Amino acid sequence: MTFELGDNQYGKAETRLVRVDRGGERHRVTDLNVTTTLAGDLTATHLTGDNAGVLPTDTQKNTVYAFARDGVGEIEAFALRLAKHFVDRNAQIHRARVKVEQYGWEPIPATGHSFSRAAGTRTASVTYDGTTAWVVSGVQDLTVMNTTGSEFHGFPRDRYTTLQETSDRILATAVTAHWRHSGSGRVDWGPSFTGARDRLLTAFAATYSLSLQQTLYSMGQHVLSGDEGLAEVRLSLPNKHHFLVDLEPFGLDNPNEVYFAADRPYGLIEGTVKRSEAPDPGLAWW
Rank of each mutant, 00 (worst) to 15 (best):
residue 3 F to C: 05
residue 4 E to H: 14
residue 5 L to N: 08
residue 7 D to K: 03
residue 11 G to Y: 05
residue 14 E to R: 15
residue 15 T to D: 01
residue 18 V to T: 03
residue 18 V to K: 07
residue 20 V to R: 08
residue 21 D to I: 05
residue 23 G to W: 04
residue 27 H to F: 06
residue 28 R to L: 01
residue 31 D to I: 00
residue 33 N to Y: 09
residue 34 V to G: 01
residue 36 T to S: 07
residue 37 T to D: 11
residue 39 A to F: 05
residue 41 D to L: 10
residue 44 A to I: 09
residue 45 T to G: 11
residue 46 H to K: 08
residue 47 L to F: 09
residue 48 T to E: 15
residue 51 N to A: 07
residue 52 A to M: 00
residue 54 V to Y: 09
residue 55 L to N: 00
residue 58 D to A: 06
residue 58 D to M: 02
residue 58 D to L: 00
residue 65 Y to T: 13
residue 66 A to P: 00
residue 66 A to M: 11
residue 67 F to S: 07
residue 71 G to E: 09
residue 74 E to Q: 15
residue 84 K to G: 03
residue 86 F to N: 00
residue 87 V to T: 14
residue 87 V to C: 11
residue 89 R to H: 14
residue 94 H to S: 15
residue 98 V to L: 11
residue 99 K to I: 09
residue 100 V to I: 15
residue 100 V to D: 02
residue 101 E to N: 01
residue 107 P to G: 04
residue 110 A to L: 15
residue 111 T to N: 05
residue 112 G to C: 09
residue 113 H to W: 10
residue 113 H to K: 12
residue 115 F to W: 13
residue 122 R to M: 12
residue 122 R to A: 10
residue 125 S to D: 06
residue 129 D to P: 12
residue 130 G to K: 10
residue 132 T to W: 12
residue 133 A to H: 02
residue 136 V to R: 04
residue 138 G to Y: 02
residue 140 Q to D: 07
residue 141 D to I: 00
residue 145 M to Q: 07
residue 145 M to F: 09
residue 149 G to T: 00
residue 149 G to K: 02
residue 150 S to K: 02
residue 152 F to W: 04
residue 161 T to I: 14
residue 161 T to Q: 14
residue 163 L to M: 15
residue 163 L to G: 12
residue 165 E to L: 04
residue 167 S to Q: 15
residue 169 R to I: 03
residue 172 A to H: 12
residue 173 T to P: 01
residue 174 A to Y: 03
residue 176 T to W: 04
residue 179 W to A: 05
residue 179 W to E: 01
residue 182 S to R: 12
residue 182 S to F: 01
residue 184 S to Y: 07
residue 185 G to D: 05
residue 189 W to M: 05
residue 192 S to V: 10
residue 192 S to P: 05
residue 196 A to K: 04
residue 196 A to D: 01
residue 197 R to H: 06
residue 199 R to L: 06
residue 200 L to V: 12
residue 203 A to Y: 04
residue 206 A to G: 14
residue 208 Y to M: 11
residue 208 Y to W: 14
residue 208 Y to P: 12
residue 208 Y to K: 14
residue 209 S to A: 15
residue 210 L to M: 13
residue 217 Y to A: 10
residue 219 M to S: 06
residue 221 Q to K: 08
residue 229 G to R: 14
residue 230 L to Y: 03
residue 231 A to I: 03
residue 232 E to G: 04
residue 234 R to E: 13
residue 234 R to F: 10
residue 235 L to A: 03
residue 236 S to T: 09
residue 237 L to G: 05
residue 246 D to Y: 15
residue 249 P to Q: 11
residue 252 L to T: 09
residue 253 D to W: 12
residue 255 P to H: 10
residue 258 V to L: 15
residue 258 V to N: 11
residue 261 A to N: 15
residue 267 G to M: 10
residue 267 G to Y: 09
residue 269 I to W: 05
residue 270 E to L: 00
residue 274 K to A: 13
residue 274 K to S: 11
residue 275 R to A: 00
residue 279 P to G: 14
residue 279 P to M: 11
residue 282 G to V: 06
residue 282 G to M: 07
residue 286 W to E: 07
